[in-house]
Design a binder for these strands. Sequence first.
DNA 1: CCACCCGCCATTGTGTACAATCGCGGTGTT
DNA 2: AACACCGCGATTGTACACAATGGCGGGTGG
Lengths: 254, 254
Amino acid sequence: MNEQLQPLKKQPRAGKAGRSGTQDDIVYAHIFEAILEQRLAPGTKLSEEALGEIFGVSRTIIRRALSRLAHEGVVLLRPNRGAVVASPSVEEARQVFMARRLVERAITELAVQHATAEQIADLRQMVNDERDSFSRGDRGAGIRLSGEFHLKLAEAAKNAPLISFQRSLVSQTSLIIAQYESGNRSHCSYDEHTQLIDAIEARDATLAVDLMMHHMDHIDSKLNLDEESASDDLHAVFSHLLQTKKPGRPTAKL
Amino acid sequence: MNEQLQPLKKQPRAGKAGRSGTQDDIVYAHIFEAILEQRLAPGTKLSEEALGEIFGVSRTIIRRALSRLAHEGVVLLRPNRGAVVASPSVEEARQVFMARRLVERAITELAVQHATAEQIADLRQMVNDERDSFSRGDRGAGIRLSGEFHLKLAEAAKNAPLISFQRSLVSQTSLIIAQYESGNRSHCSYDEHTQLIDAIEARDATLAVDLMMHHMDHIDSKLNLDEESASDDLHAVFSHLLQTKKPGRPTAKL
DNA sequence: CCACCCGCCATTGTGTACAATCGCGGTGTT
DNA sequence: AACACCGCGATTGTACACAATGGCGGGTGG
C-alpha cells in the first residue's frame, strides 16, 4: 500500500485560486482519473488515511474530494464503513442512460441556438485530442475526453443546472463504460462527434438531435448491459456489497 | 450577531441522535427551512461559527451542511469569504425553470408508467398537508411541501439521477419563489396537484403531461421575472456581490 | 465440532487548535 | 484632501487528536 500514485506532492501555490488550484480539486481529479482508467476497479475501498498519505494531505481534504465524487455518483459513501468505487448495476446504468438521452436532446437543441464560433472551435479541438488519445492507445484518457466533449457541449447550451447535471451523468457514464464496455471498439466514435459539430455549426437542430440520439444508441449498444453479466463475474455482481479485500487484483476482465 | 435565527434554538445536546437522521441532516434541514421561510434573506451571510453555536455543533458539521446546500444551489460558497444565502438572478431563475420543464415532463411520463397505488396515496396525503399549511397561513411550509410533492413525484418515476436532479431544481425553485413571488396567490395551487394525481392514477400520460406543463406555466406566471425588478431594488440586484452588511434588515419587499 | 459471545483493532466521525487569507481602517505622503 | 500602503482583526482553511462505531478473531460452552 505504498505509493502507487506517487506523482502528486503539494503544489506550491502556482496554480491560481480559480482553476486547478486548490488541493481538493487535485485530489478529486486524480482519483476520478484513476477510476476512469480502471487503476481503481469498481468496489475498491478508498481509505481516507491511505489516500491522505498518498497525496500528502490530511483526511479533511480527502474527505471533501470523496464527498464530491460521491455526489457525482462515481464513489459510494457508506456510513461508518468508508468509501468504495461505485459499481453501477445494470439497472443503474439504464437509468443513467435514460437521463442522458433526455438531457443530451435538450442540450443539443440549446447548443444549436447558442453555441458561439469559439465554442465550436473548442469542440473541434477536443475531438482532435480525443482521437489522439485513442490512437495512442490511451483508453482512459479517451473515455475522459469524450466525456469532456459532452460536457463542453453542455456549456454551449448555457444552462447552469443542466451543465451540473450533465457533469454528474457524464461521470457516471464514463464509469459505466469503463465497467461494461465490450472492449472491441472506440467508445464515443469521434467521427460522430465531428458530424454533430457540423450539424450544430450549420444550426440544423433536427439533424443535430438526430445525430445525438443515434450517438446515444451507439454508445449503449456497445455495452454489455443485457443481463449477460452473470456468468464469469461473481465479483461484479456482488461488488456493491463487498468492501473489497485486495485492491491489487483486477477483479474481472469482462 | 443579533439572533434572528433563534427559532431554530439549540436542541438539548442529549437529543442529538435525532430520528430524522444525523446531525448534518438536522442542520441542513433547519437552514433550508429558514431560507424558504425567508427568515434568512438572500444575501445573508452564514457564518460557520455562529451557526455552530446556534445548533450546538462544531464547524465541521455546519460546513458539511453548507456544502450540501451549496451543491443544491440555495447557498453560495465563496472561497475564503464564507457562505451566503443564494440570490438567484432572473437569468438563473429562467434557467432553472427551463430545466424543470424538461425534467417534469419526463418525470410525469415515467410516473404515469410506474407509480404504485401506495405512492399515489402518499401524493394525495402530501397535497392535503400542503393545503393545510396554506390555510394555516404557513407560507414557508407550504412552499416546502409543494416542493416535496414534486420530489415525491420524481421518486415515482424510479430514476435515481432524475430524482437527484429534481431535488436540486426544486430547492432552487423554492428559493426563487420565496424571492420573486408576487405574494398575492398560492404558489403551487394544490388543486392543480390534485388534478395531476388523478391523471396519473388514470394512466393518462398525455393529460398528465399537459397538466404538468400548464402547472409550470402557472408557477412562473406568478413570478416577477420580467425585468421589473430593477427599480426599487438595488439590494437584490447586487446581493450576489455583497457579503451582507446588516442581516437585520429585510433587504426588499418586492 | 460448531455456534455464539465478547473483547480488540482498524477505520471513520467529530471537535478543536492553529495557520492562512481577506477585508478594513489607520496613518503617512503627495 | 485624497490616495496608497501597511498592519490588525475576523473568518475560513487545514491538520490533528480523540471518541465512537463496526468488523473480526479468539475463546468458551453446548
